[in-house]
């Protein structure tokens, strides 16, 4: 049952090539997924602004359109208002906890350095050891890097708080029970029965198409994320054959093999969305001219649009909040390691200092 502890060990050149390869891969994966998510957000925004699909479902003019009901249930099911209220309340505490660990770690370095300097002044040449200031430079650089990251995180928190402030009210409305939600939507006398009309069925088909494109993207995103290829053996062979690794050439070729196909599919997905959205906007033009527009209908439509958009804001906001929470928790782990490094070295310095003092007092 012997497992070779050194099984994964590879020459440093291979390890470094792997690091560069992985960051190239991450860049491609993030770009592809980012493009698709951005396109989906755009599509959601366009549909919400056209009050689609709600406008097609809104027959009676006084009951909640099916798509709005589904959106309401979806976010209630994901935790609704309480979950984002809680996450937004926790953010400052998470930030503060990280700051305290960082400040405390740097404080003990400063404190030890101060005593080292005092003793150096007192004993002059006889205080034979490296100055704490030199010794702590790398740790202080690392501390500085963490502070920069924390400052950027604070900016992100501000963005999240602003989004929360802007959208909380509508999200709260969308989270209300059906009766209250329905009461909040201005009613309008029933739209002229457009059901049979050609443009409604065209719009319905187009909406089905855009949904299909979005569903395909979810699968594509999973495929892209799960694509794996063990480059280690490729780099090892290259090193063995040529004595060196042309990382860029090998990586670029391999990455193209793995992600070339996906890149095409993503571009195709963006292209078909653009086409479908164009058609939707044209058909919607026709659809809205046919419907009688009056104050009540317009008011109702405005509210339905806001409710549809509130769902998208909720999805975005809760993903931002989860990302922030994960960020701060991961940073805390890094900071605890950093704090250990600082307290270990300070402890060692104190032990060394006491011994040196003892020798000096004896001699």
């Amino acid at each position: 049952k012997f497992t070779d502890l050194f099984e994964k060990m590879v020459p440093l050149a291979v390890q470094q090539s792997m690091t560069v390869y992985n960051s190239r891969k991450a860049e491609i994966v993030n770009r592809l997924i980012g493009q698709m998510r951005e396109a989906t957000n755009l599509s959601n925004g366009v549909l919400a602004s056209l009050n689609l699909p709600a406008a097609l479902e809104d027959l009676s003019g006084d009951s909640i359109p099916q798509s709005i009901l589904e959106k309401s249930r979806a976010i209630i099911q994901q935790g609704g208002l309480q979950s984002i209220d809680q996450l937004i309340k926790d953010l400052p505490e998470l930030l503060q906890r990280n700051r305290e660990i960082l400040d405390e770690s740097l404080r003990i370095l400063d404190e030890e350095e101060a005593t080292d300097n005092d003793l150096r002044n007192k004993f002059g040449q006889r205080w034979q050891r490296t100055a704490s200031n030199d010794l702590y430079k790398p740790l202080r650089t690392e501390g500085g890097n963490v502070r920069n990251v924390l400052d950027k995180a604070v900016q992100a928190d501000i963005v999240v708080k602003q989004r929360y402030g802007t959208h909380r009210e509508m999200i709260a409305l969308l989270c209300k029970p059906e009766a209250e939600l329905n009461a909040a939507i201005p009613s309008a006398n029933p739209a002229k029965t457009l059901q049979g009309s050609e443009v409604v069925s065209v719009l319905r088909a187009l909406l089905a198409n855009i949904n299909k494109v979005k569903m395909e993207r979810e699968k594509l995103e999973n495929d892209i994320k799960s694509a794996q290829f063990d480059m280690t053996s490729k780099f090892l062979t290259a090193l063995a054959q040529d004595g060196a690794i042309n990382e860029e050439a090998i990586s670029v070729t391999e990455l193209d093999n793995i992600y070339g196909g996906y890149t095409q599919k993503v571009l195709q997905s963006l292209k078909s969305q653009e086409e479908i959205l164009g058609n939707i906007q044209n058909s919607h033009q026709e659809f809205s001219t046919m419907r009688q527009s009056n104050a009540d209908a317009n008011q109702r439509e405005e509210m339905l649009k806001k409710l549809a958009a509130a769902h998208d804001s909720y999805v975005e906001l809760s993903s931002n909040l989860k990302e922030g929470t994960k960020f701060y928790n991961e940073l805390t782990e890094i900071l605890l390691k950093f704090q250990n490094k600082c307290s270990d070295i300070v402890f060692a310095r104190k032990t060394e200092r006491d011994e040196l003092l003892k020798d000096l007092q004896q001699s």
């Binding site: 690091t19 690392e142 890097n145 992100a156 990302e323 922030g324």
Partner: peptide, 16 residues
């Protein structure tokens, strides 16, 4: 993503 990446902070001494 909104929040900065922690990758650089995670890089251990060996890689520097």
């Amino acid at each position: 993503s909104l929040y900065p990446s922690l990758e650089d902070l995670k890089v251990d001494k060996v890689m520097k």
